[in-house]
Amino acid sequence: MSEQGDDAVAATERSGRRPRSPAGTVRLAEVAAIAGVSDATVSRVLNRKYGVSVSTRKAVEKALRQVGYERPLKGEIVVILVPGLKTPIFAAMTWAIEQELTPHGLRAFLCPIVPGSVMERDYIEPMLDAGMVAAVFLSASNTLRNADPMARHLLEGRGIPYISVNGAFSDGQSPVISTDDWHAAELAVSHLYDLGHRRIGMCAGPAGNTPADRRIEGFVAAMDARGLNDAADYVVRHHFSVDGGRHAADELLARGVTAIVASSDDMALGAIRAAKRRGLEVPKDVSVVGYDDSYMLDFTDPPLTTVRQPVETLAENCVRTLVTMIQNRTVRATESFVDPELRLRGSTGPVPR
């Protein structure tokens, strides 16, 4: 908010009316009295200025909610921190979030980053006084252990709301919207098991990555539930990339697996490449399941069976929660999960005889 926040408060001082909409006004003195702070402190919180402690800011925000104040939304910026747009799933998610923001008068500002690095801080810091009202950590530092926390601390220090997608900060106090990675692994294992596969391996993402860790947990649990108790021995971690999938699949194929569950579509394509280099046919000799989904997977050789992240639902839930937070209304700082879907194509088939 700009200095218009002070003008709005002053207008109510003259009229004595309480707000009935985001465009309404509140009394500075009334909010200050409820929060036990000065009028100047309320003004700083309204305009998201430096120099207010987190506890004092929370007290003022609570008082603002008590009098029914909602911040205006029009023409404001939502920063989206995302690990590049080359990967189709991230391009699809950012586009979907941007489409959901537009009807609310909000504009997306895309920031391609290396997750958990100082790049997040370098984007956030100059945006604090440039009309920024919220941030989205889209598979960014929220998915990693021991990531640089400065970007999040800058937001919290200014009272700017943020939301995480596909992973929560270990000590964060904000809402999280995630795909149910445990269920995703169950869908993949169930499909392959029904096709007769019993020696199933997993090309998993790197250690310390929340979605990768969850998919492994789901994979092991799904295998255990079917009496395949050596599943942990058939998990190989590598990068979320084609080369990462190829290297991981080489190890699994050497152990005699007949099916592979990959932690991303890129890894799945790498697994198919590894199988073909060994003279194996997919799915005749080995079946492969990816994760994420993209329209391009209809045109791979063979078309890739995958577990689809519900991009539209993730974006809708994310923006609905963000708008509520921007308007200064209370939301629960919990993690909500949406269910993935299995998309059957040509890379899976019955276990070879």
Rank of each mutant, 00 (worst) to 15 (best):
A204N: 13
T210W: 11
N166S: 12
G205Y: 03
N166I: 13
A212G: 10
S178T: 07
D181G: 10
P175I: 10
H153A: 07
G218Q: 06
E186H: 14
G167E: 06
M127F: 07
V176F: 00
D194W: 01
G208Q: 07
V165L: 14
V189T: 02
I177S: 15
R145F: 15
W182T: 13
D171A: 13
I216P: 01
H153N: 02
L154C: 04
A140K: 05
C203G: 07
A188R: 00
T143W: 05
T210I: 09
Q173S: 11
A130I: 11
N209Y: 08
I177T: 06
R199P: 06
H197F: 10
S170A: 15
G208L: 05
R215Y: 04
R145K: 15
D148P: 11
D213K: 05
F169K: 02
M132W: 05
T143H: 01
V189L: 08
V133R: 13
A140M: 08
R198I: 14
A188I: 11
D180S: 14
P206M: 13
G131E: 09
L192Q: 03
E125H: 09
G208K: 01
S178R: 01
S139H: 10
A221S: 05
H183L: 15
F169C: 02
R199F: 04
F137N: 06
A168G: 04
A204S: 08
A225M: 04
S170Y: 12
L138P: 10
R215D: 06
A212M: 07
H153D: 03
G201R: 02
R152P: 04
P211G: 07
T143S: 03
V133P: 05
Y162K: 13
L195W: 00
H191V: 08
F219M: 10
A188K: 02
G208W: 06
R226E: 08
S139G: 07
G208I: 13
I160H: 08
N146W: 11
T210Q: 06
A135S: 13
R226A: 04
N166T: 12
A134Q: 12
V165S: 07
G218Y: 12
I160V: 12
R145T: 11
A130L: 12
M223E: 05
D171H: 12
P161N: 08
M202V: 02
C203T: 11
A130W: 08
A151T: 01
G159R: 07
H197D: 14
W182R: 14
G208E: 07
A130H: 09
D171K: 15
R152N: 02
L144I: 09
M150L: 10
M150E: 11
L154V: 01
I163P: 15
Y193S: 00
A225C: 08
L195H: 01
V165I: 14
S174K: 04
R198Y: 10
G167F: 02
